[in-house]
């Protein structure tokens, strides 16, 4: 089975996930060299097509491509043709006609990547986040961070807190959890939970304090402060902090070696207290660092026509494979 596009975690199997994580792991070292450059993707063209603002994800993809010597072009929606009335499909087809190898797409509408892939036969598409659907490279990033922090995630408990209903990160983790065998608790009031979320096989909590005990990973989602109160999902930011904010007192009730994660950017003092974001349990900056490595792996896999689930490297940690 050839992996032509990366739309989401849903399309991956356990071996493919491990393959990408392990390749990402091998790439970490590259960013620590004095000269952060490898020739892996020389001659490849990558277009980052971002219809939603996201400095960190776009930068992460850009650095990943450039460190592997690809030619990376960034197009953001505000400067693109779409603001002049061109349709999404026209924009994508125009760019595809310039024959990039990979199109990295971020869009606020779920399913954008699948839609474009139907029409762009030659270009590999990587989903950098589509609506409340999937965000596969974030989850691969988190899994690489967890590999370093706690080893095998199978059997561990990840507690995801916040706006589950609008979160692509939560959905992608719920899918990955089933594939890799970790356990997810989602924590939110009913106003922030999608319909039938329990069908993912997760536990549902409304009371954060009740969900903390036994957690190995506390995963705090970003609060979209405007969205939260304007459509009556929550009374106020301060009540959100009181009910679902992570602070020292709450963290003390989790497992002693519990790690704290956040996909960024953080609202300090809202979903997470500063001393925890910067504290010993936090893996938030590791997530950012590993994000670049994992995206190198994803871009490499997309450009590598031999990439195949059965084509696992014999020793993924061997630096020589670079």
């Amino acid at each position: 089975m050839k992996l032509q596009h990366l739309f989401g975690i849903a399309q991956l199997n356990k071996e493919q996930i491990h393959y990408l994580i392990n390749m990402g792991d091998a790439f970490i070292e590259l960013s620590k060299r004095p000269i952060k450059k490898a020739p892996t993707l020389r001659g490849k063209t990558i277009i980052n097509l971002f219809f939603e603002n996201s400095t960190r994800t776009r930068t992460s993809f850009e650095i990943a491509g450039k460190r592997l010597s690809a030619d990376v072009i960034n197009i953001s929606a505000s400067t693109s043709a779409t603001s002049k009335g061109e349709t999404l499909l026209d924009t994508a087809q125009t760019l595809a006609a310039m024959q990039p190898h990979v199109l990295v797409i971020r869009h606020s509408l779920a399913g954008t990547c699948e839609f474009l892939a139907e029409h762009l036969r030659e270009t590999a598409i990587v989903n950098a986040g589509d609506g409340a659907h999937e965000h596969p490279t974030q989850i691969l990033t988190d899994l690489l961070t967890l590999k370093h922090s706690i080893g095998d995630v199978a059997g561990k408990t990840m507690t995801i807190v916040g706006d589950i209903s609008h979160s692509r990160v939560a959905r992608s983790h719920l899918l990955a959890a089933k594939i890799l065998g970790y356990h997810v608790r989602v924590v939110a009031p009913k106003t922030l939970l999608p319909s039938k979320v329990e069908n993912y096989g997760c536990e549902v909590f409304h009371d954060f304090d009740a969900a903390i005990a036994g957690s190995d990973i506390l995963y705090m989602l970003r609060v979209q402060t405007e969205r939260l109160t304007s459509n009556c999902c929550f009374p106020s930011i301060r009540e959100y902090h009181e009910a679902y904010g992570l602070n020292k007192k709450r963290l003390a009730r989790a497992n002693a070696d519990c790690v704290v994660m956040h996909p960024g950017p953080m609202n300090r003092g809202v979903e997470i207290a500063s001393d925890i974001a910067d504290g010993a349990h936090s893996r938030i900056l590791n997530q950012v660092e590993h994000g670049v490595a994992v995206r190198m792996a994803v871009l490499t896999a997309m450009c590598d026509l031999r990439f195949n689930a059965h084509d696992l490297p014999s020793n993924p940690d061997k630096r020589g494979t670079l």
């Binding site: 009031p189 009913k190 106003t191 409304h206 009371d207 459509n231 009556c232 929550f234 009374p235």
Partner: peptide, 14 residues
Amino acid sequence: AGIMRKALEYAASF
């Protein structure tokens, strides 16, 4: 109706 739904959901959570 939308606000009533949110109110019932929020109240039901606690």
